[in-house]
Design a protein around this nucleic acid. Structure first.
Lengths: 339, 339
DNA sequence: ATGAAAGCGCTAACAA
DNA sequence: TTGTTAGCGCTTTCAT
């Protein structure tokens, strides 16, 4: 440790007030004599000065730190969110603590309690279910911003992405592409837990879009699975092929792990993955470049999400209480979609 | 906030010591009367109890928190490391703060200083260059554990992975596979910044292995680039094909982004990516499943790394000063490597 | 133009 | 078996 304010005051035989004023750059304002100011500055230049953040936090009842709870950092989307949020907080002089709850509500509640005990000033939360936001709001006295999942709490600031309209546009694009390239077969959507608002919205838009495009109902297939995970993708595809003789023409998954499971299963069949199969998935990853098939992916606008969420938090911390809901745009990325 | 110890003491008209002893479960040990204990427990069950972590930290000069500085969370390897380390710390009742320095030494030094000011108890660090470990050790009075990169500081505990022997084994495997499948062409290694000890070791092992296997020097090619990044992979491959008429038979990259760049460039050529090209890369990602080529990847043993690093930190925090260097194993993953 | 002192909520040593 | 108190290092208010 470098010297504390008191150390410096004692060694220079001035008062802590004087040292503080100089350290905070308020010397002029409070008309500290310039000799005293010089003496203190020389000393701190030489030995360094340290304001003890813990003591400051105790006194001010404010830790200048925020917390972020996400499902997992091994999910690329949340890793990006965490990284960008950490940078944004650091710019504002705030320390961000990041934890993973693995979408386990119990773990998530424990984490919320943990962060409350540590006097974190505010919480960014990706809620694991619809019962958590209210509890979190209670623990954090409304210094809470929800991310990515909107369970309908209009009085809690929330930042999500525009799943419905993006899924709608995506479905249209795939429909047209399939027509233009004259492919045959069904539209298959394999969706993770539809209780998650984001997944539900994606699924609804898929149905509505195909309806509006006059797609024949018999050509529309939806498989719902419990989680957005690899193993579920394998099972879903296996199940589909047990009931259908041929592959769909368009296959959409609600997440990349599901797509991976699907591909894994197809690879294991005698036919493999036909190059004509049109793929689409939510979330984007640069390694999708490795696929041969036509594929659309959907990329969230991380930076806008994070900036918006941070601004909402800032409002809360400065006592403004008009919680807003924000919907960030998504971009559709095309690969190998040549006619 | 729930009630503080003093609040409870005042309202129940007992002393803070009594409340504390009950809260800490030391009631029996200090023979607090069971009526008093009951009274306090009832009260806290009803209103909740809160020990103020900030005040505790100030008093104990210990924040029960650690920090981790990695290059970036958007790199899957470091995301895994961060996730696992966070869990490990949480199990031990410690808060982990994670920050990214983007391999920028200046940023990294700022972060180290930041965490020191915040009285973090210890630091896990992926050093951005060879000048940083000593400065970090100074700031953290040896409560420092280095990860992933060994710049030769034998008195600072360090946990790395076994790049040399893994790269050696990998090269042998690729050599044999190429022989068995009778492919023609060169062995090409595209390596990111070789000043990084991990990259240097991978490269050295590649050379030594091929030498020992009596590979002809004219069939060995190494391209060194500045960073383990996509754009460098593109440039490297472009450069290679400017000087050589044909593709190599085996292509190794020191990281996945480099491989992505290479593949991107090959895709853009008339020949595309020939199915006969044998690939290999350090680091592993499940999306490598999407590739058609024979490919080996190398997966680090995250869990062992993290456990070992945490144990070293624990030793430091409890005052034991015999810094050890550890080398975790890596696994070689094969895909499409059928003869 | 500078200093003194209270108090944030906790822990630990000592007292009773 | 329980209570009292000093002190961690800071900020803020009030004195000089």
């Amino acid at each position: 440790m470098a010297k504390s304010i008191e150390d410096i005051a004692a060694e220079l035989e001035v008062s802590v007030t004087t040292v503080r004023l100089v350290l905070l750059g308020k010397a002029r304002q409070y008309r500290i004599s310039s000799k005293t100011e010089q003496r203190i500055k020389e000393y701190t230049d030489r030995y360094g000065a340290d304001i003890n953040h813990t003591a400051r936090a105790l006194r001010l009842k404010r830790t200048d730190s925020l917390a972020l709870i996400v499902p997992r950092l091994s999910n690329h989307f949340f890793a990006e969110v965490a990284e960008k949020m950490e940078i944004r907080c650091r710019e504002a002089g705030l320390q961000l603590s990041i934890s993973c709850c693995y979408d386990n509500p119990t773990t998530q509640l424990e984490l919320i309690e943990h962060f409350r005990q540590r006097n974190v000033d505010g919480l960014f939360l990706v809620p694991a279910n619809n019962t958590i936001p209210l509890k979190a709001a209670l623990a954090f006295q409304d210094r809470l911003v929800l991310l990515d999942r909107d369970f309908g709490f209009n009085n809690i600031p929330t930042v999500i992405t525009d799943n419905y309209s993006t899924s709608f546009a995506l479905t249209e694009k795939l429909f047209n592409f399939a027509q233009q390239t004259k492919r045959l077969g069904k539209f298959l959507f394999i969706a993770g837990n539809p209780k998650m608002p984001s997944i539900g919205a994606r699924l609804d838009a898929f149905k509505h879009a195909l309806h509006q495009l006059n797609a024949e109902p018999k050509n529309i297939e939806i498989i719902q699975v419990d989680k957005n995970q690899f193993a579920e993708g394998v099972k879903a595809m296996e199940y589909y092929l047990m009931n259908e003789k041929s592959l769909p023409k368009v296959l959409i998954t609600s997440s990349i792990p599901l797509l991976q499971g699907v591909m894994q299963f197809l690879k294991s069949t005698p036919e493999g993955v036909p190059a004509s199969l049109i793929l689409a998935t939510f979330d984007d990853h640069s390694l999708l470049d490795f696929l041969q098939n036509p594929i659309c992916s959907v990329r969230q606008d991380y930076q806008t999400m994070i900036n918006t969420a941070f601004e909402e938090m800032n409002k809360l911390l400065s006592g403004k209480l008009n919680p807003l809901h924000h919907t960030a745009k998504m971009a559709i990325i095309e690969r190998n979609m040549t006619l």
